[in-house]
Amino acid sequence: MSDLDRLKEVLRRSARDGTTTSGRIRYGTGPDGVARMLEQVDAAVLAQRLSFEFDDGSRFICEALGRRLVRLLAPPPRGLTAEQVALFDRDDLGGEEVRMLSDLFITLCERGSRIAVTSDPLGDETNPSHVGIEPAAIARAAGLSGEVLFETKEGSSHEALLDALQPSLRAAILIEGEEATLVCGEGAEAGFVTDWADNSLEDLLSPKFPLLGTLETNGILVFALPKTTGNHLLIAGRHGSLVVATVRNGDVTATLDRWRELNLSSSR
């Protein structure tokens, strides 16, 4: 078995073990919803059947392979134009359908503010000769910046959290790889966060730290500092990037609830 085949087998097994349902995803605007849908396509390295259910109950099903959208599956959701419906008859999507697909995605995402995503591995059912369309091309046609769409996801997530914590936020640094950038705060408040990150964060970023993987992928850790300090310290991770911040007042539950609103299923 070649290394590539071994890797495929690992990924295939991982897909089977993991996520038949990834929960309900909240989005703010139509284009934001399109970005969330395209992220699912971008994550489909092996063949996946992706099902998106919108707030109005309509369901959109497609197949993705090699991080490309290759086919839409009938029946089409109700309320589409004839041109959009015709996309569901195509056996293999190509570049000429990009504009129509972006319109279709926007139409679907304007039906609500949440999508429930179900992902099922297809194994060897899908024809590997399918060409398909890169999600970035659809993103550009939808008015999103295709080049930065997925790269900025982590940053956007951290920005959303920091925005939600205003005006209690005192200082924050963003850590991406070896680079740390002070994004908020000054003076002693910024110094406290920077010093702590320099001196102690490394211990938590050790492979021996049991929560490292989850924290870096999508998690938040909050240190409740003594009440006399009137602050708490948080570390939030998303896809390998970290934000370290201090927040005024000791209400750690409010901080965790903000993070939960932004990152976890909003269906409950």
Binding site: F192, L204, P210, L211, N218, I220, F223, P226, T228
Partner: peptide, 30 residues
């Protein structure tokens, strides 16, 4: 033991002041 190690690592890494950190909370989608 892993949970115990995790607690010890966290309180070791916690900011040091006149009083110790009282609690540490972790949340992830799972």
């Amino acid at each position: 033991d892993v949970l115990c190690t995790c607690a010890a690592d966290l309180f070791d890494a916690a900011p040091k002041g006149e009083e110790p950190v009282e609690h540490v909370l972790f949340l992830s989608p799972t």
